[in-house]
């Protein structure tokens, strides 16, 4: 419910918000603008020679087709991981929110959040142990199935997807769960009284009413996955070169900070453009 603003409220709100904005400036805006600045230099301003202003780094991206290919590969990775997270996460959230009550729900919730609490490197290396040839997964399946199992998942794009889905699934589960949780139970009774079966209730009530949460979760997954570098590097092996890993290389291996910065901003721009282009669709889902 909208309230008429009280005179003087604006100033007080500004006062109260000031620390938050200060923090945003320090933690986000300053480093980002420094990076933006670097991206227009010939070299990071730490060496002996003094850097000059240039557009070279951005031109590099447009003149080297590999970058665009890798960016496209990263976007595809983002779409796949997001799709899988949604397909797995939403049903989980649905079961958690609508079927399970009391203690069991708390316990399951804890399990969902667990990946958040473990170190991401540990998480990725555990997947390496599970997925590698003759690893935990292969041996388990071998023991269970009568024929020889050699999945050879390690160092494939599938391994990267598995690792990323595991890391980012909680976002979709949590945001969807919160949205599902907010739906009044009575409307399901009302729908059943009107003769609606499960499918109708899911399609006409549950999905539309929880779509905002689902979309929020999808965005939370898609954005970082497109720029991810750790999971691709560790689990992807020779398939593990993505746009994110190239950027990381510029910073930690090649020490070409300006190029790394330029590629980062191109990634940011592309991701924002994708979100912007899909926003009419997303907005329809949010109302």
């Amino acid at each position: 419910m909208a309230q008429a603003p009280i005179p003087g409220d604006g100033r007080r709100a500004a006062g109260l918000l000031a620390p938050a904005y200060l923090w945003l400036t320090l933690a986000v805006f300053l480093p980002l603008s420094a990076m933006l600045f670097f991206s227009f230099l010939t070299a990071a301003p730490f060496g002996t020679e003094s850097p000059r202003a240039t557009l070279e780094n951005y031109r590099d991206f447009f003149e080297t087709p590999t970058y665009a290919l890798l960016l496209w590969k990263s976007i595809r990775l983002g779409l796949w991981v997001t799709l899988l997270c949604v397909l797995i996460g939403f049903p989980c959230a649905l079961v958690l929110a609508r079927q399970i009550r009391g203690r069991a729900r708390e316990a399951l919730f804890l399990l969902v959040i667990l990946p958040f609490w473990s170190n991401s490197l540990v998480r990725v290396f555990s997947w390496a142990i599970v997925l590698r040839g003759n690893g935990v997964l292969d041996r388990t399946l071998d023991a269970l199935l009568p024929f020889d199992v050699r999945l050879g998942l390690m160092f494939t794009p599938a391994a990267v997807v598995i690792g990323l889905v595991h890391s980012y699934l909680p976002y979709v589960i949590l945001t969807s769960y919160l949205a599902l949780q907010a739906i009044e139970d009575d409307i399901f009774d009302a729908a059943r009284a009107l003769g609606a079966g499960r499918i109708t209730i899911l399609r006409r009530l549950i999905l539309p009413l929880s779509l905002p949460g689902l979309i929020a979760g999808a965005v939370l997954v898609f954005v970082p996955v497109v720029g991810s570098f750790m999971e691709p590097r560790i689990l992807g092996g020779r398939f593990g070169t993505y746009f994110g890993t190239v950027i990381e290389d510029q910073f930690v291996a090649v020490f070409n900070w300006p190029l790394g910065a330029a590629l980062s901003f191109i990634l940011l721009a592309v991701v924002l453009a994708i979100l912007g282009l899909s926003s009419p669709v997303l907005r329809r889902g949010l109302t």
Partner: peptide
């Protein structure tokens, strides 16, 4: 089950579908 009973029901908080 309720879906098949051909009843009309009204709830205390109306339970209207907010998205429709």
């Amino acid at each position: 089950p309720v879906e098949k009973r051909e009843i009309g029901m009204m709830f205390q908080n109306y339970a209207l579908f907010p998205n429709l």
